[in-house]
């Protein structure tokens, strides 16, 4: 197997506050291979966006990386600063955010922004860059691309704007794209277009994608592998089909079960009691144990196991087995 594009090892992000140190990302490790889409799911506060921001070095102070390593194409990037970091962003890592308006400069024409980005990162001439900008717009499916190069961001609709952002993120041919809730602000029909576009482009170019979202449906359709986060830790990491259909971590299991689609035809949805603990009040032991039906004294007193200690699949002392699931089906 070839080396992964992105390799994150034991990443820990901490925020010092006057009431103690918060740890929104705690010992997270994963790889993303070329052409692979890794879905990162979790509920708000699980640390999924923070993980993405740590990779591109966009953490808001006082949050900072306090442990672990991030390698991009074999090169360590978590200690880069200033100019070196800026070069990596855009050139080797493209970014797509939830709100396309914030990623585009409202005062520059779309063509100018694309050309500028290409010139900044690729050794090409001005006219080459302009040609590439046009090609990039055409590739993301913007009609009448030649004219649209001269439009300002506000002249595009929401879906078209997100396409421009994708063109901008991909125009310098990065090896990794981080897409943070790229479709959350969009309507269902447009969301389908954007997801299909993202999948096609990344497959064609062999770009590695980190897709951060809370939408299980989007993950199921787009991701190859899924990392489930809970309270800053990886709860489960596995190919998408296994995570959705045969989850081993009780949290993943509850998450999948509580989507309305999973309980179709049933009167009540399966629910996980309680809510995710605040970072300021993490329970002792496994962070999920107060909400977990399988919790034992072991979970209450020992911190949850790391993924590596559990075959790299589910970070749980008592993972669900196929028999457990079958037994539940039988009683339901």
């Amino acid at each position: 197997m070839t080396d992964p594009v992105l390799s994150v090892r034991n990443l820990t992000v901490e925020i010092p506050t006057r009431r103690g140190v918060l740890r929104p990302v705690d010992g997270v490790s994963y790889d993303i291979a070329a052409g692979e889409i890794l879905g990162v799911v979790g509920e708000s506060g699980a640390g999924k966006s923070m993980t993405g921001n740590a990779v591109i070095g966009l953490l808001d102070p006082p949050a900072r990386i306090t442990g672990g390593e991030i390698h991009l194409l074999g090169e360590r990037i978590d200690q880069l600063k200033g100019e070196a970091l800026r070069k990596i962003r855009g050139k080797k890592i493209g970014m797509i955010f939830q709100d396309p308006l914030t990623s585009l400069n409202p005062l520059l024409k779309v063509g100018e922004q694309l050309t500028e980005t290409i010139l900044a990162h690729l050794p090409v001439s001005q006219s080459d860059a302009e040609a590439r900008a046009l090609a990039a717009l055409e590739e993301v499916g913007i009609p009448a691309a030649t004219q649209r190069l001269n439009s300002y961001p506000h002249e595009f609709s929401g879906g078209m704007r997100q396409r421009v952002v994708i063109a901008l993120a991909l125009c310098a041919e990065p090896s990794l794209v981080i897409a943070d809730e790229p479709t959350t602000a969009l309507d269902v029909s447009v969301q389908a277009q954007i997801i299909a576009l993202l999948k096609r482009l990344c497959r064609e170019r062999g770009t590695a994608v980190m897709l951060v979202t809370h939408d299980m449906g989007v993950i199921a359709e787009a991701a190859d592998r899924v990392a489930v986060m809970y309270a800053g830790r990886l709860a489960e990491l596995a190919p998408v089909q296994q995570v959705v259909q045969a989850p081993q971590h009780p949290y993943t299991d509850g998450l999948m079960g509580s989507t309305p689609l999973a309980s179709l035809g049933q009167k009540r949805l399966r629910q996980i009691p309680g809510s995710m603990p605040r970072l300021t009040a993490l329970p002792d032991g496994c962070a999920f144990h107060p909400r977990c039906q399988r919790a034992t004294d072991r979970c209450r007193s020992n911190p949850g196991p790391t993924l590596a200690a559990c075959n790299g699949r589910a970070a749980c002392w008592h993972p669900l087995t196929d028999e457990d699931r079958a037994a539940r089906e039988a009683t339901a």
Binding site: S157, G158, G159, M160, D187, V188, S189, V190, Q191, A192, Q193, I195, A196, L197, D215, M216, G217, V218, A220, E221, D224, V240, Q241, V244, Q245, M256, T259, L261, A262
Partner: peptide, 17 residues
């Protein structure tokens, strides 16, 4: 609409906005 069992589903996305 995304489907929970739509793994790698290649849909023809709807036209227009």
């Amino acid at each position: 609409a995304p489907k929970m069992d739509g793994f790698g589903r290649e849909i023809e996305p709807p036209e227009g906005e």
